[in-house]
Design a protein around this nucleic acid. Structure first.
Length: 559
RNA sequence: GUCCCCGUAGCUCAACGGAUAGAGCGGUAGCCUCCUAAGCUACAUAUAUGGGUUCAAUUCCCAUCGGGGACACCA
């Protein structure tokens, strides 16, 4: 809608010999009785040293000359807004598209066939997922869905950090628990190893004990020889739990990529070769000269003990992503990783240049979630075992409520998750407000169905058109039409800013407008059906359904 | 010490630099012989502080105060 209008104004500017500029089209505040407003006059006035009234005059002339069929009313208001109403036909045509495209609406192709990889969650398999991971999971899931809707070929991927110190500490913690509880025999050398590993820290959550009991079912004893097997068994068991939780959250991944797998096939020497000019050997370690890219210091990629750092794994991983042929990489990270953004971006830039590929990389940071318990803020820490697992939250408040709660806030606000409050609110929640709007649509359609068995929508288009033309612009009915028509804009804005919460807010808005419509505009009365309204209800149902399916929240028939 | 986010109603959050700052929860008062009252209507309450830029600042810049997070040959 807004895109279409922008094009119209761009053309007007062209005809008036104004340069194209970035202007806005939006709905004016409530007290202004117009459908849309643009700030073009004020913007052009400062640029061309005209008064905004003069600019408005010129635009008005042009509209009256060439665009009379689009606008039904225009007006000027200080300090320099052009307010306008559209010809009702505009709305009729758009709703008609909704009704014919149904679940495919809107058909957008602004990113047509762009291959995008969303990498998110990627939590270390060192414990159950918590609510913070949940935020990342639903963000990535929904953003992926939105980009699909905009024409992209989307893949969702989880990167498993299945090597390195964290994993050793996890395995050590479990082995130590096995020894303490005398579950199975553990070789003395293994015990030495685990003591060494745990000198820094140890995982403390209750799940460690559970895992100790789980793992001893698979082994008779733990020796230095089978230690690697024990490790990979632990990781795979952990990943099974993680996948179960993700499934419960209705988040699905196309790929799971293991960090270990990056060290096969000699990828690392290829990558070192590519980075040749940007790395150097110093103090027995291998460094990436990332200062050249604006980083505040150079970074180690291979430690003096020969082990690669996490950063190096990430470089390998992104090299592999680029090789796999994506043109757009989107990573979703917790804000605690913000220090890594520049580093990785520069690495990706170098690699894609060297490989002659044009790859975009966007890194979205979401702020962390704090848990509130008895008015105390508790930061999530897997290590300390201080967390409420995502599983628990999903069981307590339900998937849909949980997803909506996490999605409805902008990614860059800190989120306070009060578990008690969440439970309380789960009975009285915006999700139900939206879902209820959907069931009301279904209810009306069912009522109508009882009276007439079958009718084709197309037959009623003429009547629908008359209906739209008869509406007052400040009626709830017309507001509903307007709200339906901006749905594609909301999707595009959400994608542009990587902000699914626009869509959530839109849904609340749409539901509100619909509920008001419901109270004031009867569709089925005795044996009479108001077909104009019926088609409007159908269109509303389609939009509610489509946007709920992007959020992956159920659109119930009954409540 | 350096860097990143945030500070809006009693609570949880909205508001591409725009015209009278919006919702939900909670509070108060109303509305079902009528497509589901999980709804509607009405009322009350807010931009941390001080400067600046702008025709216009909750939004951008600077400072102060508060909250969260990051600054390793950790992951």
């Amino acid at each position: 809608m807004k895109e279409k209008l922008k094009k119209v104004f761009d053309e007007i500017l062209k005809l008036l010999d104004f340069e194209t500029i970035d202007f806005e089209i939006k709905q004016p505040p409530f007290h202004i009785n117009f459908e849309f407003a643009t700030n073009l006059p004020i913007l052009l006035s400062s640029k061309y040293r005209l008064s905004s009234q003069e600019v408005f005059g010129k635009i008005k002339q042009e509209i009256e000359k060439n665009f009379k069929d689009i606008f039904s009313k225009i007006d000027f208001s200080l300090p320099g807004f052009l307010n306008f109403d559209l010809n009702k036909n505009f709305y009729f045509e758009e709703i008609k598209i909704i009704l014919t495209e149904k679940e495919n609406y809107p058909v957008l192709d602004i990113y047509k066939n762009e291959k995008v990889l969303f990498e998110f969650v990627s939590a270390n398999p060192t414990g159950p997922l918590h609510i913070g991971h949940g935020r990342c999971a639903v963000l990535g899931d929904v953003l992926g869905n939105i980009f699909k809707k905009l024409g992209c070929i989307v893949e969702k991927e989880y990167y498993i950090n299945d090597r390195g110190k964290q994993i050793d500490i996890l395995v050590g913690s479990i082995i130590e628990t096995i020894i303490e509880n005398n579950l199975i025999e553990v070789e003395a050398k293994v015990h030495e190893w685990s003591k060494k590993v745990l000198c820094e820290s140890r995982y403390k959550g209750d799940y460690i004990k559970e895992f100790a009991y789980k793992i001893v079912k698979f082994f008779n004893k733990i020796t230095l020889e089978n230690l690697e097997d024990v490790k990979s068994k632990i990781i795979s068991l952990m990943m099974i739990d993680i996948k179960k939780t993700l499934e419960k959250a209705k988040v699905y991944f196309d790929n799971f990529v293991s960090e270990n797998s990056l060290y096969r096939n000699d990828i690392s020497s290829k990558v070192k070769k590519i980075l040749e000019e940007y790395i150097e050997q110093k103090d027995n370690a291998l460094w990436m000269k990332s200062r050249q890219f604006g980083d505040d210091k150079d970074r180690v990629i291979i430690k003096s003990d020969g082990q690669p750092t996490y950063f190096f794994s990430d470089i390998l991983y992104h090299y592999q992503k680029i090789i796999r042929g994506y043109s757009w990489l989107v990573n979703i990270w917790g804000a605690d990783h913000h220090g890594y953004v520049e580093r990785l971006k520069s690495a990706v830039e170098v690699i894609s240049q060297k490989l002659n590929k044009n790859v975009k990389l966007d890194i979205i940071l979401y702020q962390l979630v704090s848990l509130i318990k008895q008015n105390q803020r508790i930061s999530m820490s897997t290590r300390e075992g201080k967390f409420i697992s995502l599983d628990e939250v999903l069981n307590d408040v339900g998937v849909d409520v949980c997803r909506f709660f996490l999605l409805t806030k902008s990614p860059d606000t800190h989120l306070d998750f009060d578990i008690e409050l969440a439970k309380e609110h789960s009975l009285n929640n915006p999700v139900y407000y939206i879902q209820y709007a959907h069931t009301r649509c279904v209810g009306i359609l069912n009522e109508a169905q009882k009276i007439l068995n079958n009718f084709s929508i197309e037959e009623k288009f003429e009547e629908f058109k008359k209906y739209i033309f008869s509406l007052n612009s400040d009626s709830h009915e017309f507001k509903l039409i307007k709200t339906l028509c901006i749905y594609p804009d909301v999707l595009m804005d959400s994608a542009k800013d990587f902000s699914p919460h626009y869509l959530c807010n839109y849904l609340i808005d749409l539901s509100r407008v619909f509920h008001k419509f419901y109270e004031t505009s009867r569709v089925v009365e005795k044996n009479n059906i108001h077909f104009g309204r019926l088609l409007l209800v159908l269109a509303t149902k389609i939009i509610l359904y489509n946007s709920l399916s992007i959020l992956n929240i159920e659109a119930p028939q009954k409540m």
